[in-house]
Amino acid sequence: MPSRDVVVGSRVGLHGRPAKTVVGVAAAQPVAVRISTAGKPAVDASSILAVLSLGAKGGDTVTVEADGDGAEAALGAMVEILAQDLDAEPADA
């Protein structure tokens, strides 16, 4: 199955706004996308609870995988969104 590794660009890790954004992109893909961190089984990338349960921190490497028609394009979209810092606005006091 095609897969790609990517370093999580959001400094806060995959929770809050970054998790929500990543899940939204995964859900918009025509194929099922799965995501995993080192040592953990892959989970459904379009499930917010599954993605939060990875506990992925900024700088962690995650693996995304997908199969079938459009899998490569889907993985490209996932890598692009995961590599960004999705929480660049300063946190409120």
């Binding site: 400094r11 921190k57 946190a91």
Partner: peptide
Amino acid sequence: EFLFLGRTS
């Protein structure tokens, strides 16, 4: 503190 909250660096 607001500048530092939720930061990994």
